[in-house]
Nucleic acid binder design. Structure first.
Lengths: 124, 124
DNA sequence: TCGCTATATGCATTCAATTGCATATAGTAC
DNA sequence: GTACTATATGCAATTGAATGCATATAGCGA
């Protein structure tokens, strides 16, 4: 069916036509980050961020895996990546945030590798 | 300002995240068509089509010029064209419609050129 | 002028997305 | 087990977009 192509495109554009969601995927194309990181960047309440992450996750655009207390999300849809490239230009550099509490962000070298005993599990 | 890039992108995606508007711009990238043509293709009431055309026109995505009773619209935003190419693939062939009343559509050869005395005027 | 057609506009209503917030869950450390 | 942190979920309230429709305007021909 040809109508599906339209529906699919409308759905995709709809996901990106939202200021917070757009900024989330733009942040995510720089690399994997945790929720608290996005919270710090977007300056929005945590439940609000989580809700938008859910929308993107259920649409199959992003994927998250838990690592201890933290959940790290990344972009898994290359079409979205192309659309961002076209509209926003190339992705910026990843920025470690002092505002973010997670080990990856406050720059402790050893915390960049998996702590022994912890296992990365998919979020769904 | 960097925020403007986001705003601009959100605006663009918003325009395309609408089934009727998306189909209009997809139709328009095949070539210039009149309003009645879009009416026939989309099977929607004329005021409804005109409203969506206005949204696209005021956003600077399309442009219309009047030719006698008929107004012909065309796509003038190449970024939109690229986004459509990415999401919908290449544009289809232009299709003349028997359902459409305008001279261009019911295939009278001489009507494809401007009738003497008529002047193309911009719509705004 | 009037009558007709194509297109545009204004406005009220309906509907869906957005947002805020309270609370639930998952995991860690003790 | 309890206490604490990060993240997720559910739901009500609100806002804004989408839609329908009546009417206005523009141009043509008689």
């Amino acid at each position: 069916m040809d109508k599906d192509r339209y529906r699919q495109a409308v759905r995709l554009f709809g996901l990106l036509s939202h200021p917070v969601r757009l900024r989330i995927v733009d942040e995510l194309r720089r690399g994997e980050v945790c929720v608290c990181h996005l919270q710090a960047v977007l300056k929005r309440p945590q439940p609000y961020i989580s809700q938008q992450l859910r929308v993107l996750r259920e649409a199959g655009v992003i994927e998250g895996h838990r690592q201890g207390l933290y959940v790290y999300y990344r972009l898994i849809d290359e079409q979205v990546e192309k659309l961002l490239l076209e509209t926003l230009g190339p992705a910026g550099e990843p920025i470690p945030l002092p505002l973010c509490a997670c080990p990856r962000c406050h720059g402790e070298a050893e915390s960049l590798s998996l702590p022994s005993g912890s296992v990365a599990t998919e979020v769904r």
